[in-house]
Design a protein around this nucleic acid. Sequence first.
DNA 1: TTGCAAATTGAAAACGTTTTCATTAAGATG
DNA 2: CATCTTAATGAAAACGTTTTCAATTTGCAA
Lengths: 333, 333
Amino acid sequence: MDKQTVTIYDVAREAAVSMATVSRVVNGNPNVKPATRKKVLEVIDRLDYRPNAVARGLASKKTTTVGVIIPDVTNVYFSSLARGIDDIAMMYKYNIILANSDENGRKEVQVLNTLMAKQVDGIIFMGNEITDDLRKEFERSKAPVVLAGSVDDTGKTPSVNIDYVAAVKEAVKNLIDRGSKRVAFVSGPMDQAINSQYRLKGYKQALAGAGIDFDESLVFETDYSYQAGQSLEPALLAANADSAFVGDDELAAGVLNGLTDAGIDVPNKFEIVTSNDTKLTELVRPKLSSITQPLYDIGAVAMRLLTKLMENDEVEENNVVLPYGLMKRQSTK
Amino acid sequence: MDKQTVTIYDVAREAAVSMATVSRVVNGNPNVKPATRKKVLEVIDRLDYRPNAVARGLASKKTTTVGVIIPDVTNVYFSSLARGIDDIAMMYKYNIILANSDENGRKEVQVLNTLMAKQVDGIIFMGNEITDDLRKEFERSKAPVVLAGSVDDTGKTPSVNIDYVAAVKEAVKNLIDRGSKRVAFVSGPMDQAINSQYRLKGYKQALAGAGIDFDESLVFETDYSYQAGQSLEPALLAANADSAFVGDDELAAGVLNGLTDAGIDVPNKFEIVTSNDTKLTELVRPKLSSITQPLYDIGAVAMRLLTKLMENDEVEENNVVLPYGLMKRQSTK
DNA sequence: TTGCAAATTGAAAACGTTTTCATTAAGATG
DNA sequence: CATCTTAATGAAAACGTTTTCAATTTGCAA
């Protein structure tokens, strides 16, 4: 019943050569006489032989598979990175084991371990809180790790990002320059370095540059969800904010809709600028102005970097910083 | 330099037992004396032994990995399914190799082959055109295949879906009942069975039920993108449509914004109902009325079905049909 | 005690490749 | 045509598990 699998040994026998020779032609090794190569290829074709990648992996200690840890595929920001990762991986003949972590530390560590058990050749990690536990796992891993769109404030792990500080600073400065007096800072959990160490820093720098005192009550820490944003409207108004920088597009869409549904005129009474430039920004009305990031490229470059690490190629820079931009749409004046 | 890997053999030596015994305790085989189990576990802990899943895969012919072929992770409809798939997979101790296909037949076949080469235990396929080539690959695969949110009109491949015909019929009937005279049918490529065989059929049934003649000029075949939808506005108006059924949420968002940006009042002058009930429907203003589908569950049930197939469990129904619903939001009266 | 069934264990053969190293075949050189 | 290189090949040892089957212990009843 079970389909009989044909092995390299069967091919060798039929072609009257050794397994070694079959292996050579399968792997494109040039040390094979053209005549034998032809003969072997014919047999391979006739028997419909397909090399078993697991056996290959055991013998060669390479699986041509990389692990990708993602907070949630359903989040367009991350899935955009994932798409870049997969495309480049495929280009370099790698496959991807994708695992959702929900940014849950325990899950992350556990998944990391099963990935290592499966002997992945490398790992791409997305998720913004790099705990010490996690860093320990990274170090003990013999597979190289690259962070994509995620920061490790120690800078030890190779990574690909934009300059979050500068981007937020510029975005907030623009709001202030246009007359905003009280810019709200809306982001996800502050225990994530990207929020506390980078975005907030850029925000404070922009305030300082304009001679405005930092006001704690304008900082809104919430989770990355549409609902969270939507329900923020009363608090924003109560704090007398007249504009907001938001750290995530879905969250920003919530803020926007929460405000407009309550009758607030965006952008005339309240301006919003968001962070990730996913396609959501174009879906919503008014369209969301945003910091722009090369999402696909962040993933793609991270994967490319990982291939270099896996193949011990020269790497000039371990912490890649890609350019950002600012896109004015309709949620700012 | 390279971290020395500790093998089952090292553990056996240190614990003064055979590899077989170590293997037994690692795999929770009950035929081990508690005392030896304890001894082995201590050594495992001391040496920090981690079983090599590749070797295990070769010996046991099980990789606890399933392949998932997805048109595009970036599409919220599919990523929602993917999330359900991954959660259940994880629950049953499987990992997922995810591969984007862009619904490109050549890529699909190629990816399928590398998945099979990697000895995945099963495959979940998403993508709506099941060509003969593809079906041939499915059949020759020794790993079971399940379609998620994707139809094979021959019904040969196990699958999980909703009743597209009935759902569309009901949605369109509602539009007609509310007074719409000319309902447009907007969908993706007609060479996909889900569009040509199912949705269009439901559409026609609804028309027939209301005694309305089918009008070819009200059928709009396009691709699944926001842009495509947005640029459809002139054509829709030219065809004198006063409402539309749309086969994809992103596409529907495009249609909606195209119309409203042109000053058309939705829903009062034009009603829209979409198909997938992704979170996009809530982001947009007016919010999109939609057929509701249990997206996460479609993925989850597909994966569960696959586990049964992989473990040769009893399966009562190979083609699972999950319930749909209709969600009235703001794009219909 | 003795004997026997059941519970534990271990030896060794898979699993299907890659890779090393030695050997043989084939050209090249004088 | 003998000799020396170099190109092609093959034998066999990894790779790190699981699994089968036989052997050994153990526990108990008689």
